[in-house]
Nucleic acid binder design. Structure first.
Lengths: 134, 134
DNA sequence: TAACAAATTAATAATTATTATCTTTATTGT
DNA sequence: ACAATAAAGATAATAATTATTAATTTGTTA
């Protein structure tokens, strides 16, 4: 029997997730790994991302322009997502106030497993570019 | 020239959005309105939801199981989403702490337009059902 | 090491939500 | 009512994701 041991490609996907701050989509990971793993299949990336998410190794941050984006940093922290360029920024955990970070249950509603705090707006990069084009 | 006046069907879609606490998807709205508007087309629902969102009349809450869900209540408030049944609950605005509700900009990152606070977990309804099935 | 069993993968087809197109219909201002 | 414009229906096209299936890899055991 095979114990829970990562296959080569699964490990490569997870390692890439850990090494980047890009909050990648399946497509992005596929493109990055393809040169090193020429026989990599896109389906494998999708399959493993879902699997890693189920195992609690990564989590979904948001769906941007129809594509799911993931994060391998499991310490709770908020995100900022630029509505122009779609880039996802990590924010320091201090933006998650203690009161919110500690809520475990909402009476009459349910038990909380994951808290997602996302700020949507326009990032400074895009603001700058907008100004340039006037 | 046509002023910003809602067409019959657009009005019906918006009215339905206002009258429900379901945080509907396009499909749900289509199913609900179809009996009263037999010639309604699903494309029309998608088109108008996007339009209403651009006009700031409604906003997207989350993508659940691949489908976008909307909310017509524009007062900032958090949501609870059950990961089992997918139901979206409105939470009172007090769960949005003042400090967070008032952040307008994050230095070095960008300007905030929308804050999204979502708690994911298991709702009491589903917890109860799970227990029943043991 | 050889043979077997189970997990994983590539390749591809199938799904599904959403968007685009294009022709027809409805609506509005004059 | 009439012309101009907006909106809608029907349907085709996209695009992301999932399912399928046969082949390959990997681990296990004799």
């Amino acid at each position: 029997m095979r114990i829970q041991n990562y296959s080569r490609k699964r490990q490569a996907i997870y390692d890439l997730m850990l090494s980047t701050s890009e909050h990648p989509s399946a497509e992005w990971i596929y493109t990055m790994l393809k040169p090193d793993y020429p026989d990599l299949s896109l389906g494998t990336v999708y399959r493993n991302l879902k699997l890693l998410e189920e195992n609690g190794a990564i989590r979904s941050v948001a769906v941007i322009e129809g594509s799911e984006h993931y994060d391998a940093i499991m310490t709770p922290h908020p995100h900022f997502i630029c509505r122009l360029c779609g880039k996802i920024y990590d924010l320091p955990a201090k933006f998650l106030l203690p009161e919110q970070a500690n809520i475990k249950r909402i009476r009459g509603v349910g038990k909380i497993e994951i808290t997602s705090l996302i700020y949507y707006g326009c990032c400074e990069e895009c603001t700058k570019n907008d100004t340039d084009n006037v």
